[in-house]
Design a protein around this nucleic acid. Structure first.
Lengths: 167, 167
DNA sequence: CTATTTGCAAACGATTTGCAAAACA
DNA sequence: TGTTTTGCAAATCGTTTGCAAATAG
């Protein structure tokens, strides 16, 4: 269980890389530094939680670009290893910037009521995947792990029956 | 790590409940026993791995019913706690029958090449969720966990460069 | 100048929904 | 018979794609 020791609440995994460093990574892979590309990276840079393509699109006010351009760029960035995709089971892709070199592996705790997201450092015990791989003859085993529950505010609201929407 | 001790390869978590027992559960909740409903349950009963709506639809040969009917019934059955939904990150819902009363909690190991699926009994360490919930002030915490990798056959094919599709 | 990238519009695939007819209880 | 469920068709929603014009290097 990596990093499971400390008590960091809502650890702001804010990847505060300067935009210049991000565009430099594009150059390295001989990818063009375009307006939409920079704008997208800038939006990601300012979000410490996974964002959807639509959210990125909405966040691009003046620098606005086509939704298709965002979809295409997220693919490109993912292939370059600059962003990571997360799935919360609602069929909508969510993205987070990956810090250069850093071990970006982590998970989330999502409130099923208000969609509040907490970044989680804890993970499976050391060697878990290797043992699983060995036991079933698999190689290159990875995993997707996300937690769901009711956040403090929402569970309180639910118990007091405050703003319940129950029929 | 529950059940992580034994060496059951491909444990056939075949939920061999008689169809009559399944329809009985429908009755209990005062839901009508219709043709499509029985056919769907029968298909699920014979599959020990999660199946998609389309697969269920295809498996319904003569008893065939509309795809919309399957979607609606899966919702109903999920609400009744008779089936569980799994997401492998490809935006397609997959379903498995839940045995009456039994602790049906489990995960999967999916081959990213040939889509072969292995049911996994192993899970997070005891108390993991509770600790996480407590640490972040959440309640009712659950999780989604799926593993991905290359199965024996596919990883061997990959290393020998047999039927590679790499450009 | 040339390969890459973008905008636009149309295509796609999974899923949902409105509605009248059909079927269970 | 009255309510639930179904089939059919159309609508939605996230995502992908073809193509010609715009653009970075």
């Amino acid at each position: 269980m990596k990093g499971g020791c400390c008590q960091h609440q809502h650890l702001p995994r804010a990847i505060q890389q300067p935009l210049s460093e991000l565009t430099a990574r594009l150059k390295e892979k001989s990818r063009k530094i375009t307006g939409p590309r920079q704008a997208i990276l800038d939006v990601l840079r300012r979000h410490q939680h996974p964002v959807t393509n639509k959210e990125i699109h909405a966040a691009l006010a003046s620098e606005g670009c086509d939704l298709a351009t965002i979809y295409r760029n997220m693919h490109t960035l993912a292939a370059m290893g600059m962003v990571q995709r997360f799935d919360f089971g609602d069929g909508i892709a969510r993205w987070e910037l990956i810090a250069e070199g850093e071990d970006s592996h982590h998970h989330h705790l999502v409130c099923t009521q208000c969609s509040m997201i907490v970044e989680i450092e804890d993970c499976l015990p050391e060697g878990f995947e290797k043992a699983l791989a060995a036991r079933h003859g698999f190689t290159n085993v990875t995993h997707k792990l996300e937690f769901f529950g009711l956040c403090n505010r929402c569970s309180r609201a639910a118990s007091t029956g405050a703003t319940m929407t129950v029929p």
